[in-house]
Design a protein around this nucleic acid. Structure first.
Length: 686
DNA sequence: TTTAGGG
DNA sequence: CCCTAAA
């Protein structure tokens, strides 16, 4: 049985008043505040907020509310976990030997508008090697960010988006009745396993039963409990792995958590090969033979990605099997191709009713995390005006975020405790630890960790839909919270690296343009390749638009209803999907100059070679795809044919339109013969 | 991935 | 601009 689930990490769960823990946390915060500066405090708050809810939902189940009190929940969970850990031969120690296995990359999309913050942003970010800062492209149509790596200066100039990446450690643990380990094998191995990984679990089971790999461990056949986790996607976290607490980026306005919009050049961030190497280590694949899966329930926990996009070729999946159980880790480095790049609206006007499901990161200014939640449902509004220019302090509050996918295969006979641990492990792998997982079924907390999934009914198909998980602060989190510094370092350790996130001063768009490789130096050609990409890649920010736009987007980005944490927890999958729908790219009317460049390129290259046209004239205008150019040509032809009165938008010089018609006519006629005379330099016109 | 077209 | 069938 494969269950697809979505986990929504709600970070509202840090309810303060009732629980002793919360009280302690507040005290710790005050203590910390007295010791550290406000900057550090922000980090503290950020970490402290990591205590929300995580729920599974299929989209059909209505929001289930945990009926038990917060205090009860926490205590129960904590104690149960403690108990479990005592019983475990090997507690859940993370062996971050393989930091890459779970990848986390959270993104902030951000519009920073006020000068006082800029400096701080840049300074802070300069320390964060993992950061990728992109240009002020529209918050919605994030275009290629990857090329601009770690250039703080750019941020100063036109900061807009921050990308903070972090990687989490490998999960590798075992317990008495459930053993899990996650590693990534070599690329080859990973690829080899793709079939299995992508196939349904049934196949996997069958394969295992056939014992293809089990010769070495026949006894494994009798192992009952087996846990299998598969697939952990890349997630984007708003943390950077090696920044100091004080270096938390100052985020203004509302942040939208966006998926990585990787594109052609994102290798700095997410180079598959690099990643593979990073997780290549001691591969156990094959070493331990295969276990058979006995009556396993396969929980595919989808901590989703907001995109429906499927894994692409860069997906890496690894299967791991170890002695006591079956564990499979599929890791996927997800790339979001330029064309498919999609951002997710937290709750735009059109779907503001879905605000809950959105990934929201809000900025809370001049207020404590604890107190602010209820009072500021939409902290974003009016922030511009109210922001004290002299005080750069900004507090972050993460309302919620989504995490890619977790596939959990677990036997029916596994206990709830095992399920918790499995999920917890995976989640902690993503979040860096310190989180306990509770299990909710139909809104009710399952407290008995010793029951099996079968006994609790979790394994029943109809029940599993109401299965949920809560994320709760782990007691082990305490030292972390009181010691942000250490925590920060831990992040550095857990997450990885510099190898993968080299402080590449590399490509910035200010880089000198390379020779265009175009061997046919034509007329004083108009080529947009010689324009700084920023000119075109950035959001069209006409003076009259920018502010308004910012406001609009800001509004669209966040407003997460001030819902009670419990209610917030469950998010219908359907809603998620809808809100995940692609964001339409922002409209960027062609300028006359662009039109001219296009016309000239087409005159030379002809229609039907849009890629070449793109390369020739718009190489550095990332936002103009060859499809765009083709479309533009199409409209140009149309425009040229209609009467001037019917034309709209910025008027295109008639001269250009004439050339359009001429070129179009020429190349239309030329097409048939093109085969024969594909003379390179045919500037047949003119 | 590109091209070609419809929406 | 988006989406996609085809190549």
């Amino acid at each position: 049985m494969v269950l697809e689930k979505r986990l929504e990490y709600g970070f509202n769960g840090y309810k303060v008043p009732p629980t002793p823990r919360a009280a302690r946390s507040v005290r710790r915060r005050c203590l910390f505040k007295s010791k550290a500066g406000n900057r550090q405090l922000r980090a503290f708050d950020l970490l402290a907020t990591v205590a929300g809810k995580i729920l599974l939902d299929t989209g059909r189940s209505p929001p289930s509310v945990d009926t038990s009190s917060g205090r009860e929940q926490q205590e129960v969970v904590v104690t149960s976990v403690e108990k479990e850990e005592k019983n475990e031969a090997e507690p859940f120690e993370e062996k971050s030997s393989d930091p890459d296995c779970y990848e986390r990359n959270f993104l902030f999309t951000e519009l920073v508008s006020e000068a006082p913050n800029l400096k701080i942003c840049s300074n802070e970010l300069a320390c964060a090697q993992n950061d990728v800062i992109s240009r002020p492209t529209s918050g919605i149509t994030t275009s290629d960010c990857s090329e601009k790596v770690g250039s703080a200066d750019q941020l100063v100039d036109d900061d807009c988006k921050l990308r903070l990446g972090i990687s989490s450690p490998t999960v590798d643990f075992e317990s008495s009745d459930c053993r899990v380990s996650a590693k990534c094998g070599s690329e080859d191995e990973g690829r080899k396993q793709i079939d299995n990984a992508s196939a349904n679990n049934k196949n996997l089971t069958i394969r295992n039963r056939n014992g293809m790999h089990s010769s070495g461990h026949p006894e494994a056949w009798d192992r009952k409990p087996s846990a299998l986790i598969s697939s952990v996607d890349s997630v984007k976290f708003p943390f950077c792995s090696n920044h100091t607490p004080g270096s938390l980026p100052v985020i203004r306005d509302c942040k939208k958590l966006v998926t990585r919009d990787d594109d052609e050049k994102s290798s700095e961030l997410n180079d598959p090969s690099t990643g593979n190497k990073a997780c290549r280590p001691p591969s156990r694949v094959g070493d331990h033979g295969t276990r058979k899966l006995l009556a396993s329930k396969h929980f595919k926990v989808t901590l989703d990605l907001k995109d429906d996009e499927h894994y692409n070729a860069d997906t890496e999946r690894c299967n791991y099997l170890n002695r006591k159980g079956n564990f499979k880790c599929e890791r996927s480095m997800r790339d979001y191709p330029f064309k498919k790049r999609k951002l997710y609206d937290c709750s735009s006007g059109s779907n503001s009713d879905e605000g809950i499901d959105s990934d929201g990161i809000c900025v809370v200014e001049n207020g404590t995390n604890e107190g602010e939640r209820d009072s500021s449902p939409t902290p974003l509004r009016g922030e511009h005006a109210s922001f004290p220019s002299g005080n750069p302090q900004v507090k972050l509050k993460i309302k919620s975020f989504r995490v890619p996918e977790l596939f959990i295969d677990i036997p029916e006979t596994a206990t709830v405790g095992c399920l918790k641990r499995t999920v917890m492990k995976a989640v902690n792998g993503l979040l860096g630890g310190g989180i306990c997982v509770g299990v909710l079924l139909q809104g009710k907390k399952i407290r008995d960790d010793n029951k099996t999934l079968l006994q609790t009914g979790i394994s029943l198909d109809n029940k599993v839909d109401t299965l949920g998980f809560t994320l709760e602060p782990s007691i082990t989190q305490a030292p972390i919270q009181s010691c942000p510094e250490d925590r920060s370092r831990q992040f550095v350790h857990d997450s990885q690296p510099r190898a993968r996130y080299p402080p590449t001063p590399s490509i910035t768009h200010n880089a000198v343009q390379q020779g265009n490789g175009d061997t046919t130096p034509d007329l004083p050609g108009i080529s947009f390749k010689n324009f700084k990409e920023s000119d075109y890649d950035s959001a069209p920010s006409p003076p009259d638009m920018s502010l308004q736009k910012t406001a609009t987007e800001t509004k669209a980005l966040v407003p997460i209803p001030a819902t009670k944490p419990d209610a917030l927890a469950v998010v219908p999958l359907r809603t998620l999907k809808r809100s995940e729908s692609a964001q339409r790219r922002i409209r960027r009317p062609f300028t006359v100059a662009e039109v001219e460049a296009l016309v000239q390129a087409v005159e030379k290259l002809g229609t039907g070679r849009w890629r070449d046209v793109k390369l020739r004239a718009f190489e550095n205008a990332k936002h103009r795809t060859y499809v765009d150019l083709k479309d533009k040509w199409k409209t140009l032809v149309h425009t040229a044919r209609i009467s001037p009165q019917q034309r709209r938008g910025e008027p295109v010089p008639q001269e250009l339109l004439d050339r359009v018609l001429t070129a179009h006519a020429y190349w239309s006629q030329q097409q048939p013969r093109q085969h024969f005379k594909s003379q390179p330099n045919t500037c047949l016109l003119l």
